[in-house]
């Protein structure tokens, strides 16, 4: 089996999970703890990648981050590489696909913490930030970690958005899902089966881990 696409997928998934963790947990914190105008709109926008067709998302990213777009040009000027049709594009694509999972699950985990505990921290002299960091965040940690595991699994298997934004360049942006598609197109059934089974095993292992984590979290362990 050609391991390069799988290695690239793992590399992209790790980086995408990192990006989705920072942006997603930040957004979840904002939505769970603050009341501000436009909060519902932020919630809808953060969730939209879950329901929009991957091609539509990919199109928006191409338009926003392409070599002729302001953001794309700025990135290229600073880092010397374009976003689209590179590994950076693959990371961006996977991050956007994973973001709603992190936002939704992390927000639920943060909001699931007994509000009285946060109030108790406040009456014990903790400013809102300290109450959040020392009480709400640690008690939501298992739920947040579970959401990151789901994000990793989602990033590992992304197809549509990655194809639109990063293309299918062997050795450069061809991830495991894309390699599987190509193997089918080229009637390499054995290679397709190997790739499919490997991706399935990783996904099931992650789901099992998430299940264990959330069960322990529900028991309050």
């Amino acid at each position: 089996m050609d391991l390069a696409p799988l290695a690239l997928s793992l590399q992209v998934a790790v980086l995408a999970t990192l990006v989705a963790a920072i942006a997603g947990v930040g957004l979840a914190t904002l939505l769970a703890t603050a009341r501000f105008p436009g909060r519902d709109l932020v919630d809808v926008l953060a969730t939209a990648p879950m329901v929009l067709p991957p091609t539509v998302l990919g199109y928006y990213l191409l338009v926003a981050l392409g070599r002729h777009a302001a953001l794309g040009r700025a990135f290229e000027a600073v880092f010397g590489t374009p976003i689209v049709f590179t590994r950076v594009g693959a990371v961006v694509a996977a991050s956007v696909g994973a973001l709603p999972l992190v936002v939704k699950s992390s927000r639920a985990a943060l909001e699931g913490v007994d509000a009285t505990l946060v109030q108790a921290a406040r009456t014990l002299g903790a400013a809102p930030a300290r109450a959040f960091v020392t009480v709400q965040l640690p008690l939501a940690a298992r739920g947040i970690v579970a959401s990151l595991m789901l994000a990793f699994a989602r990033s590992l298997g992304d197809f549509g958005i990655t194809l639109m934004v990063a293309g299918d360049i062997p050795g450069e942006t061809q991830t495991a899902s894309l390699a599987l598609y190509d193997a089918i197109q080229e009637h390499r059934e054995a290679a397709a089966l190997e790739m499919a089974l490997t991706l399935t095993a990783v996904a099931i292992a992650i789901l099992y881990g998430v299940g264990k984590l959330t069960a322990r979290s529900a028991r309050g362990a």
Binding site: T116, L117, R122, T123, A126, A127, A131
Partner: peptide, 27 residues
């Protein structure tokens, strides 16, 4: 709230479940 100097013992007690008794008091 945190500047009022009010100690509040809640009906549920609201002890922090992830901290020991000593850590709860130290908070």
């Amino acid at each position: 709230v945190h500047r009022r100097g009010v100690a509040y013992v809640f009906q549920s007690l609201a002890l922090f479940p992830h901290m020991t008794a000593a850590e709860n008091v130290a908070y």
